[in-house]
Design a protein around this nucleic acid. Structure first.
Lengths: 110, 110
DNA sequence: CAGTATCCTGGCCGATACTG
DNA sequence: CAGTATCGGCCAGGATACTG
C-alpha cells in the first residue's frame, strides 16, 4: 500500500503547513502563532502544535518565568519540511485569483 | 486576512494531492484512478475529481462509447500545481521512517 | 500567558443500493 | 464503466469556561 497517505495525514494538514510556515524565521510563542495563523482556534493550535512536536518537527520550550513563556521552534527535520512545503504555499498564493475565476465560471455554467 | 487558507482547503487536501500526483503521466480513467489512489472510496474520488474540475485543475472528458469511458487530465494550471506539490510528496516518502521513530519515542516518554 | 476541560454540532466520509 | 442517491455514525473542531 502507498504509505504516503499516512504521512500526508500529518503533513498535508492545512493548519500544520501554515504553522510550519510561520516558524520559518525563528521561534514564536503560542499567542504570536495564534495571531499569525489567521482563523485558527486555540484548541486547534494546541492540537496542531502537539502533533508537530510528537512527529519531531518542532520543539516546545518552557521558560520558567512569570507570566509563562513557551516558545516553539522548528527542528532540523522541521526546516526541511518547511522547505519542501514552500513551493505549494507559494503556488497557493499565486494561483488564488485563477482558482476563484475557474470556480465562478464553473458555478455559472452549473 | 491570509487567504492562503482558502486555497489550502482545496490544495492541502490529502486526496486531491494524491489524485494530482497520479495524473502526472497523462490522463487516467475513473477506475484507474480508484485503483491507483490506494484506499480512496468511490464517493471521495467522485467528490475530489469534481472539486478539482471546478477549480480548473483538471478536465473531465466523456467519450461517447459503450461501455462509458471518461478520462481525467491535468490542465496547464493543474500541471503547475503538481510540480509545486512534488517536493512535499517526495519529502513525505523520504521522512516517513524518521517520523515514525520520533512518534514512537514521544509516545514512549508520554 | 498558555494552556486544559467540556460540551456540542455540522459535515465528512464510508457503506450500500441503484442507473444510463 | 462511471457514476448518483441516500442514510447514518463519528469525529473534527468551534465556543466557552476555567487554571497554574
Amino acid at each position: 500500500m502507498c504509505r504516503t497517505r499516512a504521512v500526508l495525514d500529518i503533513v498535508g494538514d492545512k493548519w500544520a503547513l501554515l504553522v510550519v510556515r510561520m516558524l520559518k524565521d525563528g521561534p514564536l510563542r503560542f499567542t504570536e502563532l495564534k495571531r499569525a495563523v489567521d482563523g485558527i482556534s486555540q484548541r486547534m493550535l494546541t492540537v496542531t502544535l502537539r502533533d508537530l512536536e510528537r512527529d519531531g518537527l518542532l520543539t516546545r520550550t518552557v521558560h520558567a518565568v512569570m507570566p509563562p513563556h513557551v516558545s516553539y521552534e522548528l527542528t532540523p527535520m522541521g526546516r526541511t519540511l518547511r522547505e519542501a512545503a514552500a513551493p505549494l504555499l507559494e503556488w497557493s498564493v499565486r494561483h488564488m485569483p485563477q482558482i476563484d475565476a475557474a470556480r465562478a465560471a464553473y458555478d455559472e455554467r452549473g
